[in-house]
C-alpha cells in the first residue's frame, strides 16, 4: 500500500491531493449527497417550497408501471448488448489468435470502433436503418419483404439501439479476449491435440474455462457500459421512444428531471442507479479483479 521510505513534510501532501479532492467533493460527493437529500422531498410546481416526504418518492417510483417497465427494458437491453458483443468478439479473437501472418493487420481493422463515440455509433446505425432510405431497411424490405420502421415499432427501435451499442463495444471485448487467449499456454492445447481432442472439444474443455476470468470481467464491464454509457446512443437517436420502448434507466433519470421537471422522482431514480453502480463496482472488485489474468 505504501512505500517503506517516505518523505517528511507537514503540508506538501495536502497541497498535492488538494486539486483532486476539491474536484471530487464539489462535483461528485456534494451532488450525490444532494440527490440523496432531494429524493426525500417533494417540490411544489413552482420550486418555491418543498416538503419532507420520507420514502414516498421511492414507493411512488416502484409502484409506477412505467418505471418498472424501464427496469425491464434496461435488463433486456443490457443483456442483449453484452451477449451480442461478447460472443462476436470471442469468435473474432479466437480467429485472430489462430492466424500467424497478417495478424496485426486484422487487429488494426478490428480495434478502431473503440474510438467512436456512442452517440456517433447510434447515429450511424440510425442512418443505416432509417425506414425511408436506410440501406438495411431497404434490404429487409427487398429481400424478405420485412417492414422495418423503428419510429413506430418499439421492438425494432430497441433492436436498433442494441445493435449500435454492441457494435461499438466489440473491439473492446476483442482486445481483452485476445489478451486472454494469448496467455493460455500452447502446450495445453498441444497435449489435448495429441490425445485426439477435436478443435471444438479443445475449445470448450480447455480454452473456454481458462478464459473464464476474462469473460467474467468483461461481463461486468459490458453491463456497466450498457446500463450507463449508452445514454448518448438513445438520446441521439430514438429519444427513448417510441412510447418509451427504448427508455432505459439512465435515460429515464434525464427525462424525468430535465424534461418532466419532477425533481424528487429524478433524485430517487439517481439514488437507485447509484446503488446499482455501487453494487456492480463491488462485485467487480470483490469477485473478479483478483482472478483476472492478463
Amino acid at each position: 500500500m505504501q512505500k517503506r521510505v517516505v518523505f517528511q513534510n507537514r503540508w506538501l501532501p495536502y497541497l498535492l491531493v488538494a486539486p483532486q479532492i476539491v474536484v471530487t467533493l464539489v462535483f461528485f460527493i456534494w451532488p450525490a449527497y444532494q440527490a440523496l437529500e432531494t429524493s426525500f422531498y417533494i417540490e411544489d410546481a413552482f420550486g418555491f417550497s418543498r416538503t419532507f416526504v420520507g420514502f414516498e418518492n421511492f414507493t411512488r417510483l416502484f409502484n409506477d408501471a412505467g418505471y418498472l417497465r424501464s427496469f425491464w427494458t434496461t435488463l433486456v437491453f443490457g443483456l442483449s448488448v453484452t451477449v451480442l458483443s461478447m460472443s462476436m468478439a470471442l469468435a473474432l479473437a479466437v480467429a485472430a489468435n489462430r492466424v500467424i501472418r497478417s495478424a496485426t493487420t486484422y487487429r488494426t481493422f478490428l480495434i478502431w470502433p473503440y474510438a467512436v463515440a456512442p452517440a456517433l455509433a447510434g447515429v450511424l446505425w440510425f442512418f443505416m436503418m432509417n425506414p425511408s432510405l436506410g440501406i438495411v431497411a431497404y434490404w429487409l424490405e427487398a429481400i424478405w419483404g420485412y417492414d422495418w420502421n423503428h419510429y413506430v415499432n418499439g421492438n425494432q427501435a430497441l433492436l436498433m439501439v442494441i445493435i449500435a451499442a454492441a457494435w461499438k463495444q466489440i473491439s473492446y471485448n476483442f482486445l481483452f479476449f485476445l489478451a486472454g487467449l494469448q496467455s493460455i499456454p500452447k502446450s495445453l492445447i498441444e497435449a489435448a491435440a495429441i490425445d485426439g481432442a477435436s478443435p471444438t472439444r479443445r475449445f470448450w474443455t480447455i480454452v473456454f474455462p481458462l478464459l473464464s476470468p476474462t469473460t467474467f470481467f468483461l461481463l461486468v464491464v459490458n453491463l456497466v457500459y450498457a446500463f450507463f454509457d449508452t445514454f448518448a446512443i438513445i438520446h441521439a437517436t430514438t429519444s427513448g421512444g417510441p412510447a418509451d420502448a427504448t427508455s432505459i434507466l439512465v435515460y429515464k433519470v434525464y427525462s424525468t428531471g430535465f424534461v418532466g421537471q419532477d425533481y424528487g422522482s429524478s433524485a430517487a431514480q439517481s439514488v437507485v442507479l447509484m446503488a446499482l453502480v455501487i453494487a456492480m463496482t463491488f462485485i467487480q472488485f470483490r469477485f473478479i479483479e483478483r482472478k483476472v489474468q492478463y
Binding site: I29, W30, I278
Partner: peptide
C-alpha cells in the same frame, strides 16, 4: 507521504468510480 487522513482521501477518490455523471445529472 504519510499524513493524517491519507486513507480517507484515498477512499474519497475511490468513490468517484461509483458516481458516473449519468446518475447524478441534475444536482
Amino acid at each position: 507521504f504519510r499524513f493524517p487522513f491519507r486513507m480517507l482521501f484515498f477512499w474519497l477518490i475511490f468513490i468517484t468510480l461509483m458516481l458516473p455523471v449519468e446518475v447524478r445529472i441534475l444536482p
